[in-house]
Amino acid sequence: MAAAARLTLLAPVAAVGRLTLGLTRLTGALTLFALRGLLACLSLPFYGRQLLQQGVAIGFMSLPVIGLTAIFTGAALALNIYTGGGRFNAEQIVPQIVALGITRELAPVLAALMLAGRVAATIAAEIGAMRATEQIDAMRTLSTDPFRYLVAPRLLAGVVTLPILTGVADIIGIAGGWLVSTLTLDFNPAVYARATVDFVEVWDVQSGLIKAAVFGFIVTLMGCYHGYTAIGGARGVGRAATRAMVWSGVLIFATDYVLTTLFTRG
């Protein structure tokens, strides 16, 4: 009886312990996986054809979604800032704040989230299915390293294309703000554009693009990791896809905070 009571009392402690151990193990496995992936990116042979394919699938095909997201976000942001600015008689601040908000924060984060939804799950499902049907084993017996053939091209495509997508989102997002401001808020088009150009610093854009590169790595890494380690057939593949998407999202927000802290200190 006493032993049982002690067990119940200790149950929460055990649960915390299990969780901690689980997280530690996951972090370790993930770090090793990421290092192997990076190493594969930096060593030969280099599968250019795969990289091109992934660049198109991951980057180019995401353009429409990310463009749409950006234009509506820019427009809504302008309206909100106009309302908020009005409370201080500072409506003219709209172009500056829109530009700042889009380049430093919204374009990279939203583009990354869209990529997480579109790409992380796809990658996880693709690689997970290859794992389940022994295609990854087959690849190794064909003297081809799956890290170089499957993982590296996806990681590289993520790191290269997300900053480009973010650059596009910067322009479209700011244009969205400009459109709604000149069409409905009586801003002078030229004055608005001038204000944006004069205000934005190179670093605003740069810091956003750096964030995007990191997010691109995170999204594709999550897809590859959860797919590669998927177990348990078709259900395992489904689980891997969901996990890849959810963990991408969480890590994007967490990393965004850390990077923003670093970038605003200097």
């Binding site: 693709e126 299915a129 290859m130 049907t133 022994e134 295609q135 084993d137 087959a138 690849m139 190794r140 017996t141 064909l142 003297s143």
Partner: peptide, 16 residues
């Protein structure tokens, strides 16, 4: 690996 060829149970062909 260089010296061998493997036929897997489910063929394990690359479907892409």
């Amino acid at each position: 690996y260089r010296a061998s060829g493997v036929l897997f149970q489910g063929a394990a062909l690359f479907d892409s």
